[in-house]
Design a protein around this nucleic acid. Structure first.
Lengths: 185, 185
DNA sequence: TCTCGACTACACTGACCTGTGAAGTGTTAC
DNA sequence: GTAACACTTCACAGGTCAGTGTAGTCGAGA
């Protein structure tokens, strides 16, 4: 999906503003103005604000998956591979929290095109944990993968909402212990 | 703080709507209409929408603390006391997720009167974990309390956003194992 | 009887919201 | 040379947003 130059600027600006201020709090006029583009162009490229929101979430999801995938594939030891998402957590965790959790909070309509992206992101991570745990020879993979997901999401919330940066380290250490115990059988 | 009959209805309606649809998505006209009250009354009682939002969060915080406190005090064993917040998690976890995390997503201004309530809620829970862990004779209480907070918040997110209801059980079991290991020494 | 507090009725402001219509400019590709 | 494409300009529709001003009703307590 190749974007026109204007569309790329719109998406960059919208991503920053949606994440920083919230989806409902940012109007299309602001996005168009900050992108140096007219509102007409915005609607010609994206069709509606809802679709722009979905495009924002898809782009962020894609960037994040690339980052996690790269971190996973940089490791060979199955145990370290399962822990890779925790290794990149610190680069990812910003003070406004998880963009997908935040989007979930604002998108109350289950039919919104962005909702599928949000749940897809979490499901992808859970499945990745499950796959790497299986490769590491763990038993009870389903619960273990959920456990890692809980630690991952909990770390982000405790970091951003509760203002506890140490939560990232605590979650990472807990995940490591969990995986090592599971793989040792 | 005794509320007038009108104010009570406004707060009830606002709580439902803010939680279900989101804060920015609900206008004061809707709240007034659904409360069977004029907008004038709403402004006479609460002053502004921001203050109404803060009142909503304070009321929800208060109800939740009462519930958790009751669950903690119903137990005598220090280990079970530390785990009490996980016992009431299932009653609390709804499909729209944690109201405070959702509010954090929408309130980008750190000076918003609701922000203090949100961070206060998380800090209160963390401190409760720390106090009960200390009473249970645990070492390294700070990290353990954070670990429990991570499990707690992660369970809520994994449940609501990721659509994994089993996350509640997984987090509860993990917390139990953690507390029992910590108190055993 | 008088006052006070809770509340109603309702018009109104000014800003902002998403979204559209129509006409026109500049660039590139065939 | 012409057609497709990206984009501009700008006016405008039809709502909704938070918030205010003014005048008045009704019941309870002093």
């Amino acid at each position: 999906m190749t974007l026109t130059p204007g569309a790329r600027r719109i998406l960059e600006v919208a991503s920053d503003l949606f994440y920083e201020r919230g989806i409902h709090a940012v109007g299309v006029d602001t996005i168009a103005a900050e992108s140096g583009v007219t509102k007409r162009t915005l609607y010609d490229r994206f069709g509606s604000k809802d679709e722009l929101v979905a495009a924002y979430l898809r782009a962020r999801d894609e960037r994040w998956r690339e980052r996690v995938t790269a971190a996973v594939e940089a490791e060979t030891d199955p145990r370290r591979r399962a822990l890779a998402p925790f290794a990149v957590l610190e680069d990812w965790a910003a003070d406004r929290g998880c963009a997908f959790v935040n989007a979930f909070a604002e998108l109350d309509d289950p039919g919104h095109p962005g909702r599928a992206v949000v749940t897809g992101e979490k499901e992808w991570l859970r499945a990745l944990f499950a796959a790497e745990l299986t490769a590491a020879g763990a038993d009870d993979v389903a619960d273990l993968a959920l456990h890692l997901l809980v630690l991952h999401e909990g770390a982000l919330v405790a970091h951003a909402v509760a203002g506890q940066p140490a939560a990232l380290r605590v979650a990472r250490d807990a995940a490591r212990g969990l995986v090592e115990r599971a793989a040792a059988r």
